[in-house]
Every structure is written in structure tokens, then in C-alpha cells.
Amino acid sequence: MSRRKFVTLAHGGGGKASSDLIEDIFMPEFSNELLESLSDGAVFNAPPGGRLAFSTDTFVIDPVFFPGGDIGSLAVHGTVNDLAVSGSVPKYLSAGFVLEEGFSLKELKKIARSMGEAARECGVSIVTGDTKVVARGGADKIFINTSGIGFMPDGVEISPKRVKKGDMIILSGSIGEHGIAILTLRKGLEFDTELVSDSRPLHELVKTMLEAETGIRMMRDPTRGGLAAALNEIAASSGNGIIIEEKAIPIKDSVRGVCEILGLDVLNVANEGKLVAFVPPESADKVLSAMREHPAGREASIIGSVGGTEPGRVEMKTEFIGSRIVEPLVGDQLPRIC
């Protein structure tokens, strides 16, 4: 590792310092055949069926290290999960870094290590990458973009257009942990909770689910904007109404407590390791039991169904005995949570 302790503009210059950074920090953590060829692009074979899923996401989370993960593991999980809920088996990732001059190389190493570990856990290879350095103040510490390619199994088609009236909606576990864990770290809002982010990969859970029912109609991971945003998007793009039951939605007491104190609606709070699936009613029980067999779906629960009174509208029967509409979040509840 270089004797320099901080990222300098030279690290992004394309010269000696740039290649040192790649050799010392990224290669040892990401190592795989495709990356080691150090060519400008990774070349690989498409799956026999020929269908691919492709997704991208950029991570600007503040703070960079948080209970339950860091920007590196999050950047891998985020794109892996987008590929997984598209129905594909995640295979290859790219990683683009924007580093602020002065960022600690030790922390960068730690982030690279956690990306490498997360990639191995997810069975994906980081096969191409890029690093840019901007002058101090031009960015905040580190931003990461990951794009990914997944192989689509035959017969799987995940699309909001396939959502039908009567479909059951399954949520894989308790909501709001990522958003609240990050929020409690913010200056001026120091809450003492044991909460950790739920950041985790979902590809294996999805595999289990698709083995139980190839015909799952739609899946989404409710990240920014929370469950409310995910359900509203699906209601709008499928042209169906959705009705959910408040008391069926798993929520940890500590999340519920912080939301109460701050007046937040937990349905708007971000998750990084949960998914919501739309399943034909006849196979809902089968998919649910398969999910509960898996650690990422232990607390899975049927939270509602497709129907309701108005196309495109999400309604919720409240824990009380009334009902209300569920609107997507307006404005910014909390910036830079992912």
C-alpha cells in the first residue's frame, strides 16, 4: 500500500498513483479473472436463454460507515437486489468511484474490502471499474456507482403489467430499519437505539421464491420512499388498486418508537434488505412458506391484496378500525440515506 495516507488528485490522474490505487486497494479485494485482465471492457458469455437484466444505482450515503454496513456493502447489495427483484440471477458488477481529495486511504481500503466480501457473498464478480478524484469540497468523501448484469431464468417474467386483481402481496420482513438507523446517527438527533441497517442481499431469497412459484408477477425492493412509494408505483403502472392491512406489516418496536417521536410515517422510511412480491392467490401460501424457510424472509407476511376501490390507489385498513389512503412521500424526509 502506498505511503500516502490520503486520496490526492494524482490518484485520479491516470498515471502511476492511479495504477497504485487499483493495484493496492481494489485488485486484492475484488480479484477475479475478468478484472485481472485489466482490459477496457469485460467480455463474457450470455446465458443460454439469452435474456439479461441490467440495472444501475449510485450511492452517496452519509455517514459512510453505519451500523449494519457501509457504503461499499450497500453499493453491492443495492444493485444485486435490483437485479434479483427483476427475477434474474446477479452475475457481474461494475464499480465507479468518485473520491474527494483528502479521503482516508485506510477507509477506502475498508470500503473496498467490504465490497469484495459482499460481492463474494452474492456470487457476483466486480469485472470493471473506474476511479475519479475531485478537489476537496467537490464531493463529500466518497460516492460509488454500481451497475450490474443478471441472467434471466427461462419462464420468469417480473413486471407490474402482470399484476392482476386478487393477487396477494407478500412483504419479506419488518420495515424502516435502514432509514431509521441512518437517521439516528445524524447530528442533533442522537437516539440511543440498538437499531442496525437491514442492508443485505436478496438474491437467494428470490431464488427460493421463484423455485416455489415461477409465475411470481412482480417484485420490488422498497428502498428510498419506503413501502408507500413501492406500492404506489406498482398500483400506478399496473392500473390496479391495492389494499393493505396495517396490523399485518411487521415493524420493530424501536423503529415504531423513533417514528412516533419524530412524526414519521414508517411506510415512507427506506429499507435495504426487504422485498415486496405480488403472487397469484393460489400460490401465496406456498411462496410464503418458502420465504419463511430463508433467513432473509423469516418474518415474511401477507400484507394485502390487489383490489381496493380505485385503480392506481393504495389504501390501508388501519390498526384502528378505519381506513385511509397511502400516498408516496412528498419532499425529502431525509437526504443521502443510500
Binding site: 412524526g263 376501490t309 378500525i321 385511509r324 389512503i325 400516498e327
Partner: peptide, 22 residues
């Protein structure tokens, strides 16, 4: 968020719905 129009925007449903008996 506490303004009447904002609360109606987020939570109010046009039709009255009979509550389900618990």
C-alpha cells in the same frame, strides 16, 4: 405536514367506508 390540505392530500379518501368489525 400538519396543514389541513396536506393532511387531506395524504390521508383523505373520497368515499366513506364502513369499518370492518374487529
Amino acid at each position: 405536514d400538519e396543514g389541513t390540505c396536506s393532511v387531506y392530500y395524504r390521508f383523505h379518501r373520497a368515499q366513506r367506508v364502513e369499518p370492518e368489525i374487529v
